[in-house]
């Protein structure tokens, strides 16, 4: 065959190749593969879990991924997680308070090389998202200062969380002239200790550093051991939070932000899937008062069941 004919045939082949591979390349541009991250929960219900889910779903929607939710099999978490991984789960968000079960899940995920992010739990060396408990204490003190009260009674217990909150509060009080009393004997108390009594008589503010302590403060209030002048600032009181504020039983509540926690947890898992390191993320709690209770900013925190 003559050289020009060969060149022409080669050019024709080249043009066909350009069109074929070019168009195939553009058609082959399929969207990135959607991955699924599972929110594994030890509890089945609850507004906190609901908001965690909404937050994680918002983060998943942002990146075009999916979130699935499963209840943790307490009897055999290893088999359950292996099955989830076999189904193509890319990472796990774990929400639960059972320490032993959490350890099991961590061990299984480590063995299966499955990224794990702990929600509402802070553990050194693990990827986790938790409320900034120190800030909770600080916010409580700020509320006290807003009320113009100088004396404070802390109802606390020996938990790590309460200790962190207390540290945040005392740090915030540092340098002030407040008279402070830390009381941890409030369980089933029918009378106030002398120092506490003295301070409450002077209109001291009561900061309950845990949910149980808040309920105890309310009980003391109902029993007349605390009077109307003793503003109660509670934390994690449970489902009656709105009415407590609306009815003036508490001056303020410090509430965690599960929606933000779910969102940050998912983003952290996403970061780890892309090679990021496992880090500890803290989420700011919200100070809820009668003034800001109904504002849109606090809807997810104060009214977690509202759509």
């Amino acid at each position: 065959m003559k050289r020009p004919v060969i060149i022409s045939v080669l050019c024709l082949i080249a043009s066909l190749a350009v069109m074929f591979f070019g168009f195939r390349g553009s058609q082959a541009k399929t969207p990135a593969k959607t991955k699924t991250i599972t929110l594994l929960t030890q509890e089945d219900t609850g507004s906190f879990l609901l908001q965690l889910r909404y937050g994680a779903e918002a983060a998943a929607a942002e990146v075009g991924d999916k979130l699935s939710i499963s209840t943790l099999n307490r009897d055999d978490p290893a088999t359950q997680i292996a099955a989830l991984q076999a189904d193509g789960i890319a990472a796990i968000l774990l929400y639960g308070s059972d320490d032993a079960l959490t350890r099991q899940v961590k061990a299984v995920c480590k063995e299966l090389r499955l990224p794990l992010t702990l929600l509402d739990r802070e553990e050194v060396g693990s990827a986790c998202v938790a409320t900034d408990e120190t800030l909770a204490g600080t916010l409580a003190v700020q509320r006290v200062q807003t009320l113009g009260v100088t004396d404070v009674v802390f109802l606390t217990d020996n938990s790590l969380m309460a200790a962190k909150r207390l540290r945040g509060a005392t740090d915030a009080l540092e340098g002030s002239l407040a008279d402070v009393e830390i009381w941890d004997g409030w369980t089933n108390a029918t009378a106030l200790p002398e120092k506490v009594q003295k301070l409450t008589a002077r209109g001291a503010c009561v900061i309950a550093l845990t949910g149980d302590a808040t309920l105890a403060a309310l009980r003391l209030q109902a029993n007349g051991l605390l009077n109307a002048a003793n503003a109660i600032i509670g934390m994690d009181p449970g489902s009656d939070r709105v009415s407590l504020v609306e009815n003036g039983q508490v001056s303020a509540l410090i509430l965690p932000a599960p929606y933000t926690m779910g969102y940050r947890g998912y983003r952290l898992a996403e970061t780890m899937l892309h090679g990021g390191k496992a880090e500890s993320v803290t989420v700011e709690p919200k100070l809820i008062t009668l003034t800001n209770l109904y504002s849109p900013e606090n809807v997810k925190v104060a009214f977690p069941l509202l759509q």
Partner: peptide, 22 residues
């Protein structure tokens, strides 16, 4: 698509020009 078409057209033009000149 236009880039692809132009590139393919350039190849075809080269081939056609070679063939026609020949």
């Amino acid at each position: 698509i236009m880039s692809l078409v132009l590139l393919a057209a350039a190849f075809i033009a080269l081939g056609a020009a070679t063939l026609m000149a020949y």
